[in-house]
Amino acid sequence: MSDRLAVRKTYKLYVGGAFPRSESGRTYEVTDARGHFLGNVARASRKDARDAVVAARGAFARWSGATAYNRGQVLYRVAEVMEGRHVQFCEEVSAAEGLSGSKARAAVDAAIDRWVWYAGWTDKLAAVLGSANPVAGPYFDFSLPEPSGVVAVLAPQQSSLLGLVSVLAPVLATGNTAVVVTSAERPIPAVTLGEVLATSDVPGGVVNLLTGDAEELGPWLAEHADVDGIDLTGAPASRAMEFEREAAGTIKRVVRPPATEPDWTADPGLSRMTPFLETKTVWHPIGI
């Protein structure tokens, strides 16, 4: 047993590829499942959310324009780098969610495997979701899926890592960029995930992680004119309808919150990718 005094971490936001504190200067105390102090975590503000949207918009052209193969490799790289931090994630998930060692390990394993699963999707979506359309005329006509743009994600409140990855990875696999509000009470695995993303060739701004309160930040993201879609999974039940109404003002694509937090180990299918994909259809004459 070493008597070395540990060096503790300052838990900050992840915005535009950097780790700023909240511009508001606010933090809040985060404890483990038993109530022991873990750290003072940045409490993101409305301004932080807007900065994150700017970063996500700025990163969109490059990320959506990258080849599907490249995006797949980057997402696979996230899994590789997470694997190297396996022990750390297990400890943090265990502390956050009060899980036994084996259950925390299962959650971390599933989270890493989920990145691998989505990494493999990037270069198959166009084949599965696109089509050549046999129109009744001399035209070549095809349809392809394209990302909606900037997606705001209110991450699940309970499942601090597997739930977070399950809502974030599909947004990225489809070529969108993301502004994520993490679980309020269990944000620390998300902060560590930010560090993984920063070292996994995910371009800065593609993912922006805001620790703090979905109830506070939700309305600003729901009404923001430069946000194209919003996943309300982690929205407080009492406010979700209001957020959806706000989102209607700019015709956002909305994923409604489930009645209760889903079983994140279940096969997600395409259900979390299609909501943030558009279909573009292109026509060109043949022989004219």
Binding site: N133, V135, E278, T281, V282, H284
Partner: peptide
């Protein structure tokens, strides 16, 4: 944009999203 017409315009077909 959801529909792009190249060297044509305002074409529609039930097979075409």
């Amino acid at each position: 944009a959801g529909v792009v017409w190249a060297n044509t315009f305002n074409k529609f077909d039930p097979t075409s999203p």
